[in-house]
Simulated assay, not measured.
Amino acid sequence: MGGTEHLTVQREGATLVLTLNRPEARNALSLPMLVGLHDGWLEADADDSVRSIVFTGAGGSFCSGMDLKALAGNGMAGEEYRDRLKADPDLHWKAMLRHHRPRKPVIAAVEGPCVAGGTEMLQGTDIRVAAESATFGLFEVRRGLFPIGGSTVRLQRQIPRTHALEMLLTGRPYSAREAAAIGLVGHVVPDGTALDAALEIAERINSCGPLAVEAVKASVYETAEMTESDGLAAELARGWPVFDTADAKEGARAFAEKRPPVFKRA
């Protein structure tokens, strides 16, 4: 498994856990973090034994966004990774899920601040769990900056436009309960339990047919901006092949035999 000094990679059964690990800076983005995230997403995609991904942060924070001290000229941590960015100028956008969508479901487990770039990365995840004291927000306009991680496009597609515009234009913080009320997160749990709750969701996903899960996720995103008729046609194209898999037959057989299915991604 990969990882860097600011990004840890662990396995929990069939789940790959990616943890932002720069707690002294509230997990502000750094070059080692971005490189580790990029490699972690690709590792999950390439490993068929990984069925889900949990994305979280260490030390009671998710991510406080860009390292503003570094932006002001004090130097970005991990300059030795600069050659990776030169080799792939799009690496940071892939790392932040702006230009990459993992084929496995991604579940965010948020404790503490998830603001600016943290809220932007959150929009690239599929299922979101927040602790009671988690905070969200796009603070860029307060600094004279632009939320260029995708928020002016994605946020209005994920929550009502009036809420998206308020978040984008005021730069104010949102509590976990507010975030749940507008649909930015799906679950609010007691502090300190977000990771456990996310892993529970991941385990439910892991018990399902992996080919079916990946096809369903792909279909949801593929059809999101289509007309209904085009979307239904695309759904059939994605869905029918799943019925011809050995896993589909195993699922039916296991149901008839009243036992858990043993899926083999076949």
Rank of each mutant, 00 (worst) to 15 (best):
L165V: 11
L165T: 09
E166D: 13
E166C: 07
M167E: 00
M167A: 02
M167Q: 00
L168S: 03
L169M: 12
L169C: 09
L169R: 10
L169K: 11
T170C: 07
T170N: 09
T170H: 05
G171E: 01
G171M: 02
G171C: 04
R172D: 13
P173L: 01
Y174A: 03
Y174F: 10
Y174T: 02
Y174M: 10
S175R: 03
S175K: 02
A176N: 02
A176H: 01
A176K: 01
R177C: 13
R177I: 12
E178Y: 07
E178N: 05
E178P: 00
A179F: 07
A181H: 14
I182K: 05
G183H: 05
L184F: 04
L184E: 05
L184Y: 01
L184C: 07
L184N: 04
V185F: 03
G186E: 07
H187W: 11
H187D: 14
H187A: 14
H187I: 12
V188F: 05
V188A: 06
V188I: 08
V188M: 08
V189D: 03
V189Y: 04
T193V: 11
T193F: 09
T193I: 11
A194P: 03
A194C: 10
L195M: 04
D196L: 15
D196M: 15
D196S: 15
A197T: 11
A197K: 11
A197P: 07
A197R: 10
A198M: 04
L199C: 04
L199D: 00
E200I: 14
E200T: 15
I201E: 01
I201P: 00
A202Y: 02
A202R: 04
E203G: 11
R204H: 15
R204D: 13
R204A: 11
I205E: 01
I205K: 01
N206Y: 04
S207I: 08
S207T: 11
S207Y: 11
C208A: 14
C208W: 11
C208R: 12
G209H: 08
G209A: 15
G209R: 10
P210C: 03
P210F: 00
P210W: 00
P210T: 03
L211F: 09
L211V: 09
A212M: 08
V213P: 00
V213G: 00
V213Y: 00
E214Y: 07
E214I: 09
A215K: 03
K217T: 02
A218P: 00
A218W: 01
A218E: 04
S219N: 12
S219G: 09
S219W: 06
Y221M: 08
Y221W: 08
Y221S: 09
E222Y: 11
T223K: 06
T223E: 04
T223Q: 07
T223F: 04
A224D: 09
A224T: 13
A224M: 10
A224Y: 13
M226E: 10
M226F: 07
M226N: 12
T227Q: 05
E228L: 14
S229T: 10
L232N: 07
A233M: 11
A233N: 10
A234T: 06
E235Y: 14
E235C: 15
E235Q: 15
L236H: 15
A237R: 14
A237H: 13
A237Q: 14
R238I: 08
R238Y: 12
G239Y: 13
W240D: 15
P241R: 02
V242M: 08
